[in-house]
Design a protein around this nucleic acid. Sequence first.
DNA 1: CTCCTTGGAGAGTGGCACTATCCAATCATG
DNA 2: CATGATTGGATAGTGCCACTCTCCAAGGAG
Lengths: 221, 221
Amino acid sequence: MRLAELSRRSGVPTATIKYYLREGLLPPGRRVTATQAEYDDAHLKRLRLVRALIQVGRVPIASAREVLTALEDESLDHNSRLGTAVWALPHGPEPTGDESADETGAAARRTVDALLARLGWEFAEGYGDESPSYRMLVTAVGTLARLGYPCAVEDLAPYARAGRQLAVTDLDLIERYDSPEEQLEAAVALTVLYEPVLLALRRMAQSEESNRRYGQGSPEA
Amino acid sequence: MRLAELSRRSGVPTATIKYYLREGLLPPGRRVTATQAEYDDAHLKRLRLVRALIQVGRVPIASAREVLTALEDESLDHNSRLGTAVWALPHGPEPTGDESADETGAAARRTVDALLARLGWEFAEGYGDESPSYRMLVTAVGTLARLGYPCAVEDLAPYARAGRQLAVTDLDLIERYDSPEEQLEAAVALTVLYEPVLLALRRMAQSEESNRRYGQGSPEA
DNA sequence: CTCCTTGGAGAGTGGCACTATCCAATCATG
DNA sequence: CATGATTGGATAGTGCCACTCTCCAAGGAG
């Protein structure tokens, strides 16, 4: 199919597709003549993934490119590709440096390390403390503390328990796919796309639980 | 304290504080003279909440203003304020309209309604289908389907279960605070600030679970 | 041949969260 | 009291980023 049809089928404007091509988010089409190129279903699928990453996952263009590049990096094995791809997914605002320096930041780090030790996770060691997720967690706990909501290990534990359950569910979902390529794409897509699902369900459950505890007074109270 | 000291104590540039004052995110200080105003600890606390909403929660200025206005709206009772505030929190990209029209969108809505029916939640009725969380969920499920990852009620159930556990934990945390004002602020702050905590823990758990299943091959694989 | 379409490239747009610059009133100091 | 610094308010500008517009030459359709 031509670019125009790719646009029609995906609902993405041609100008935007051209932009993605330029940015390397979409591999170039098979050149038919000097001025025309042919696109296939793989392009369509990739385009939808890109849109999902950018619009739903709010992934910046540059990060999306890293993720996609890792997915198809032939020089890496399956696990490395997945690791690199998920690694490149955004994890919220990077710590600015001054917040890891103060006492609150240090306390946050200790709390997180204690939590991981209790859980038996190995993030605090080796490559682990460079993990974006680890840094994201430390930053979030630090922010909570600075706002006057100190959270101890016991406060975090329920969230970690929920995270474990979710991870098991996630990986079960991914294992439904047979080919490594599909699994890779599914891992990225599901990691990003289930985040809004989870957050929406949490808020709805909050509302439900609030109504249960405090009566039928008001919507989403 | 003066604006400069508010800035020093919060780490927020004076220009930014002025901007927040203009935008109504921060109530004006008590006017001392025609050209000077006095700020107190309440301003400091509010300022930190604003920063948390904007920087961590990525809440747009306009939404943040709505949230904060609802928090201190004297004409509403406790529950209504909380409901309005959480209602105003961002819920991802608004559906563009064309996605609720097609068959995939309709199927997504049916799936969500079925899930809620099974859970016994009442979101599908009355005010409920206008709930931002509900719309967020339908949009996310629709996007998943369009990407080729259809999720049935059984697929969503584990996430809903996790959401319920989280909501109970959230409300327990909020109940620690005695005054209604503190509870309101805590509800907003914790809803927003625990989102990165949860997402980080989920990703770390994914990595952990992946290592457990597929060996020690690679980081975060 | 003529007109339309295609794809590539660079510059332009719009939204948004700030941020730099002014300015007059006021405060602190000698 | 003189004088320089500071304060807070208003306005315009900045930087980023995801697009989007405009142009263009090469191809294709009738």
